[in-house]
Design a protein around this nucleic acid. Structure first.
Lengths: 199, 199
DNA sequence: GCATGCGTTCTCTGTTCGTTCTCTGCAAGG
DNA sequence: CCTTGCAGAGAACGAACAGAGAACGCATGC
């Protein structure tokens, strides 16, 4: 859905002033800031932004305040750093955004890591690849997960969870699987997409 | 369809100033910029550009704004079909567009294919992966290319070109390389990116 | 119970904008 | 001379847009 000029103006205004609102503003307050004198007129625009998906809806019940600017409009995902078997995630100083096509992500929160090392090379995940991770605390057996092991090291492995033990398989015939107590493995995300550049 | 001189002028103007429009301009605004004083005159030219396919049509209902300059700048690449070793490209009926992040493509024309088979699995290219191909007729040795062999079959292989022969290497230890006369190998594109979905 | 604040819905009015139309001017080609 | 094609001006129409204002529903506070 495309926005009209005024709708875009209002959306830009909300985005520019989002950090100044400690509470979301009321329609009357926004009217004053935008130079309008009718709540109804503003509401029409806001409603358009809601249906277009740019603003969180304020369905019915007013809790005195309302209207959440919320602009996750850009489909970039945060690039958090590099992951290697057996190390903490090497974070980048400030998370950049990286564009990810919708096929390679899910509707839930996702982030991007860069792979270091060849521990998953038999699964076609090579050194330097970018992986898209869905933030999640549980996984199904056979999925490839970002796992925090014993609270100290983070690794990308295929997971098999049994009642008494959790096994993390590298996809590399020269490496050994890790067998751990379930309490020592904390799932941080699940692999949903992968990208590689040959340039 | 052929453009008249004025139509081409206007199209160039739109292209040059496309990035300056945060909103698409109205006809009146364009008239002012172009030194015209009649919306109707401009509309005639724009309509010609629409039918010629250079401008996105503004089908009837004006949404307060309108008229989208639109050069081919949208970041979707055409998805042409599937490629397997030893077969012609299995084309999709109508080319869809698939979004590709800028890191995975080049500035030159690119397209997307879906990989069938495991002939490149040792290079981390698996069955079902999407590959981004830069349209190009030449390649450097060691690059992975889309090659037309003997004018009949299309394949994705790593290339080695020598004066007297061209060798196409699959990246799969169970498969044999193809050794061909240079005239029998026609390069159609070079691999520049790769995407995989685990969903 | 009453007043107030706020989101929501509605009608009504004026403006904007794309679209279509006619008319004029100009140049090229016969 | 006439015809054809291009470029522009201007008027007019209808749909979409933008805003004002009134009214309603629902919550909270006194």
């Amino acid at each position: 859905m495309r926005l009209t000029r005024r709708q875009k103006e209002i959306l830009d205004f909300l985005g520019d002033n989002a950090q100044e609102f400690e509470h979301p503003p009321t329609l009357d307050e926004l009217c004053a800031m935008l130079g309008l004198s009718s709540r109804g007129s503003l509401h029409k625009h806001v409603q358009a932004l809601v249906t277009a998906g740019f603003v969180e809806p304020m369905d019915g019940q007013h809790r005195g305040i309302r209207l959440i600017p919320d602009d996750p409009a850009d489909d970039g995902l945060p690039f958090l750093g590099a992951i290697a078997a057996g190390m903490p995630i090497e974070a980048v100083p400030q998370p950049e955004c990286i564009q990810v096509p919708p096929q390679l992500r899910t509707d839930r929160p996702c982030y991007v890591l860069k792979v270091r090392g060849d521990s998953m090379c038999d699964a076609g995940i090579l050194d330097g690849d970018y992986v898209v991770i869905e933030q999640r605390e549980t996984a199904r057996n056979g999925e490839i997960v970002v796992a925090l092991v014993r609270g100290e090291e983070v690794t990308l492995k295929r997971i098999l969870q049994e009642p008494s033990r959790t096994i993390l398989y590298p996809e590399n015939s020269t490496m050994a699987a890790m067998e751990l107590e379930p309490d020592n493995v904390q799932i941080q995300g699940v692999l949903v997409g992968q990208m590689r550049s040959y340039r």
